[in-house]
């Protein structure tokens, strides 16, 4: 299942539509890291509202996306982690340290807009 990516102004928005396999996740990582420079984006939002769980592989991959995108000169926000998914993540020992999170797409966009307006 491919994750659709939308360009909105200076930001890229990737919306996960369903449960992702490892292969989907790796594909998403490559696509985002490639496109962020091509699109000259300042920030990337990955909306994971539809993800059924976030296990160690998924969170490691998302963390890597954020780190790689930072190396490519942009900022990543993960939005839409569901309460029960967050609960399972911390029980498992996953905290997505160093990754910015926001409640939903709207909040993620607010965060990026604020950040880049103030520095611009």
């Amino acid at each position: 299942m491919e994750v659709p990516v939308l360009k909105q102004g200076p930001f890229l928005i990737a919306t996960v539509q369903a449960a992702l396999t490892d292969e989907d996740l790796v594909h998403l990582r490559r696509a985002m890291v490639e496109r962020v420079v091509i699109a000259r984006s300042l920030g990337v939002i990955i909306d994971v509202t539809a993800m059924d769980i976030m296990d160690s592989f998924a969170s490691r991959t998302l963390r890597e996306v954020a780190q790689m995108i930072r190396l490519r000169g942009a900022e990543t926000v993960i939005v839409g982690i569901q309460p029960e998914v967050a609960f399972a993540m911390v029980q498992l020992g996953i905290t997505l340290e160093g990754v910015v999170t926001a409640l939903d797409l709207e909040e993620g966009l607010n965060y990026l807009k604020q950040k880049f307006n103030s520095s611009a």
Binding site: V79, I81, P83, V85, A86, F87, M89, V90, Q91, T95, L96, T101, A102, L103, D104, E107
Partner: peptide, 12 residues
């Protein structure tokens, strides 16, 4: 600590 971390994952 887990409560704090889980809240952060939701953006709070």
């Amino acid at each position: 600590v887990q409560t704090v971390e889980a809240s952060r994952l939701l953006g709070a």
